[in-house]
């Protein structure tokens, strides 16, 4: 029998659970999500995990992430799972995945890129998974997740 340390986080009545986040990515994800200031949030960092050695976990009470918000989390922590809870029940569970290409969500890191002047949403192609990295389809500048500036 394994003697994994247990942790206790209270169950949600309704809201969103982000599980299997990459270790130490939860705080970055929360900064990016900019949830309403009075939201109840429970965060676990460096929790033991079966899939990987460590994982992060976020529980958001009373708020369901939009598709766009989920897409942003996927850029920080691909392969996380997202569960929508209603009345203590998981009504929807999805594995986040990285798209091949995507519009918007982040700004091109290159200050000389045309998108900043034209105010069109950026278009990016995903190049790497760990760390996540993308290439701007306009100016062809490649940059990694640590340089993502989310919209």
């Amino acid at each position: 029998m394994s003697r994994q340390p247990t942790y206790k986080v209270s169950a949600l009545t309704q809201g969103t659970v982000l599980d299997h986040l990459r270790a130490r990515s939860a705080l970055r994800a929360l900064r990016v999500l900019r949830l309403p200031p009075d939201t109840t949030i429970m965060v676990g960092v460096n929790l033991p995990s079966k899939r990987h050695e460590r994982k992060d976990l976020i529980k958001i009470e009373g708020y369901e992430l939009t598709q766009e918000e989920a897409a942003k989390v996927a850029l920080i922590s691909p392969d996380a799972t997202l569960s929508i809870i209603r009345e203590y029940d998981v009504v929807q569970k999805t594995e986040l995945t990285l798209p091949v290409t995507f519009r918007g969500l982040i700004r091109c890191v290159n200050p000389s890129c045309i998108v900043h002047e034209e105010r069109v949403p950026g278009l990016f192609r995903v190049e790497g998974n760990d760390p996540v990295s993308v290439r701007c389809e306009y100016c062809e500048t490649s940059f990694a997740e640590e340089f993502f500036e989310f919209l």
Binding site: C108, C113, I114, E117, E118, C139, E140
Partner: peptide, 10 residues
């Protein structure tokens, strides 16, 4: 020809 990078693609 344009001074901004990526302008031609746009």
């Amino acid at each position: 020809r344009h001074p901004r990078e990526g302008s031609a693609r746009l």
